[in-house]
């Protein structure tokens, strides 16, 4: 789970989730872990913090009735552009490997 490739993929997945709806850290972590069960929580939080530090998200606080205060992440327009760029790179890679005969 330490490879650059997987980190990149995780980042893409996190951005994708956030492009669908605003999410709080724990929710995002659980969603990503449902697809990548062997990823460490620490890695997901760390990637999320970096994405945020780079200005791809901003945060706001929400509170559910009786629940804890939650920090929601929302994609900024810069973040959305970054996601689009990563997505097209990802699709290019997929096309290229398919062309070479690697298929799922």
């Amino acid at each position: 789970m330490d490879t650059q490739l997987k980190k990149g993929v995780l980042e893409l997945c996190i951005l994708h989730q956030l492009s669908l709806k605003d999410m709080y850290g724990y929710e995002l972590m659980k969603t990503v872990k449902s697809a990548f069960p062997d990823v460490y929580d620490a890695s997901i939080y760390a990637i999320l913090r970096r994405i945020h530090a780079e200005g791809h998200t901003d945060v706001y606080y929400g509170r559910t009735s009786g629940g804890p205060q939650r920090k929601y992440y929302r994609l900024t327009s810069q973040g959305y552009e970054h996601f689009q760029k990563m997505m097209s790179e990802w699709q290019e890679i997929l096309l290229a490997v398919h062309r070479l005969g690697i298929s799922t």
Binding site: D2, Q4, K7, Y40, A42, S43, Y45, A46, R50, E54
Partner: peptide, 20 residues
């Protein structure tokens, strides 16, 4: 979560490898 020491390692690794 795993041990705190391992968590520290993962956090620091994520920072330095991306340098962002």
């Amino acid at each position: 979560l795993g041990s705190p020491a391992q968590t520290v390692k993962l956090i620091l690794a994520e920072r330095s490898s991306n340098g962002h």
